[in-house]
Structure formats: C-alpha cells, structure tokens
C-alpha cells in the first residue's frame, strides 16, 4: 500500500470516498501528512475537496460562517474577524498558519486545537452535509465522525466581551501549556450575567469550565469576587501530560492564568 490522494470537486463525492477503510480527509495536512511522514501506516488514502465554498468567509451582521478550508492566516488578516485574530495567530508559526485549517483544528488533539477553544467559547455550530451540530456535541463524537466538515457558524463576539489567552513556554510560537477563551456578558454595573469559558489542553480535547462559569455569575471582575470561580476552575479537567507540561502543572497554573485573563 502507498499513500494516495484523491481530489473531488464536490463534498458529496468526497464523502462517499471517505467511507473506504484507511481513508482520511486532507485539510491543510499539518497533522495528517505529518503523521504519514512519521511512519503512521494506518492511513493509505487521502481525500480532498476543491469546492470554493469551503474556503469562503462570510460575515453578515454578527452571523459568521467560516468554510472548513479557511486557514488561520486568512482569519488573522480578515478585517471583520479582528476579535478572532489572537486565537488564529496562536496557531503555530507563519507557515503553519498559511496551511492549518479551521476544519483540521476541530480534530486536532491536545496540545493542539487552540482555535477550536475559541470556537467552543462562542458555542459555534459545526456544519456537515448531514446537518448542523453544536460544537460541544461534535467534539465529544469527533473520533467516530466520518463526515466532512464543510464549515462552522457562530455569532461574532463584540471585542470587549471576548478574550483569548494561549500560554506557551517558547515565544512567539510554542505549543500550548494551555489555552483559555472566555465570552462574558456583563450588566451595566459590571456584574457577569452570562459566562462561557473554554479550555484547551485541560483534557484530550477542548472543554468547558462549567463550574467556573456558574461561579462567575453575579460577580464583578475583581480579584475577590472571581476567587470562588478560580477555585473551581479545575473541576472536571483531566489535563494531558506531554513534554511541555505535566497534568499536575497544568492544573496548578490554570486558575492563575484564568485569573489574569479575567482581570486583564
């Protein structure tokens, strides 16, 4: 067996081809070609789609749709997506960003998946030919997923309500110790009325910090008031251990970084 690439002009045809054993979708290839180069012989066939809609970015009002083939570089330089630029720029170095796609990032195992952390905080919807699923459901079932993701939709956050942080040891392009995205709505007096917090590297895939989200409600963003939320930030996490950091370390520093992000 060798590695072979099949190119299709429609998602429908590509989806059919993808059902064959040993076949995988080729996005930017930064993970799947890398695995083949490293001797992973489980993949013998790659499938790609040239349909232009997959590379399209559409922003109308707040409603945003990113095609699955949109690259991190395209997001980072798009004038209307400035709120997401920090998350897109957090992925790899410049060459990786020119290749890494939104679709591939949804499948990237920890310590990768930084952009998906941002998407999770936005409660994005993942689109396939079969329909639409909330990102959290999608992430839970992604290992068994065989359908091509065509795009992702979400409401573009206002810049002041959305925050993203990637913690890395090597700057500017190190792999994540962890990443955090928060989407907070606040009342006129500054108290938090709704909170979504997504974490990267705190499990094998991006996850929500539900306990911290609940504890933040009704708080103002002061060191004292957010303390109870930080105390429960690690609830339900099972961080990875890799050469960048141990699970223990990740759990120890999570509240510190979440606190800095909330108080920034």
């Amino acid at each position: 067996m060798t590695l072979a690439l099949q190119t299709f002009s429609t998602v429908k045809d590509a989806n059919m081809a993808l059902q064959a054993a040993g076949t995988r979708y080729l996005g930017g290839g930064t993970l799947v070609v890398r695995a083949a180069n490293e001797g992973d012989v489980s993949v013998s066939s790659l499938v790609r789609v040239t349909e232009p809609s997959l590379s399209a970015i559409a922003v109308s009002g707040g409603e945003t749709r990113l095609g699955a083939s949109v690259t991190m570089a395209a997001i980072a330089r798009h004038p209307e997506l400035a709120a997401l630029a920090p998350a897109a720029r957090a992925v790899g170095g410049p060459a990786i960003r020119n290749m890494a796609t939104v679709g591939g990032n949804l499948f990237a195992p920890a310590p990768y998946g930084d952009f998906t952390v941002a998407m999770l905080a936005l409660d994005a919807i993942v689109v396939t030919e079969d329909g639409q699923v909330p990102i959290q459901t999608f992430l839970a079932g992604r290992d068994a997923s065989r359908a091509i993701v065509t795009g992702i939709t979400f409401v573009l956050p206002r810049a002041e309500s959305f925050r993203f942080l990637k913690v890395a040891r090597v700057k500017p392009k190190g792999v994540s110790v962890l990443s955090i995205a928060t989407l907070l709505q606040r009342a006129a007096d500054g108290t938090v009325t709704s909170a979504r917090i997504a974490l990267g590297c705190m499990a094998d895939r991006p996850m929500r910090a539900r306990a911290a989200e609940r504890a933040l409600l009704g708080c103002r963003l002061t060191a004292e008031e957010i303390a109870p939320a930080l105390a429960v930030a690690g609830e339900g996490t099972s961080p990875i251990t890799d050469p960048i950091a141990s699970a223990w370390y990740r759990n120890e520093v999570l509240p510190v970084h979440l606190g800095r992000l909330l108080l920034a």
Binding site: M1, T2, L3, A36, G39, V41
Partner: peptide, 11 residues
C-alpha cells in the same frame, strides 16, 4: 523501494 514500503514492512 520506498520509505513507506519500508515502514509498512517494519510494522
């Protein structure tokens, strides 16, 4: 003959 064939056979 190829890297890939060598990897597959090694497995």
């Amino acid at each position: 003959e190829t890297e890939r064939a060598a990897q597959e056979a090694a497995a």
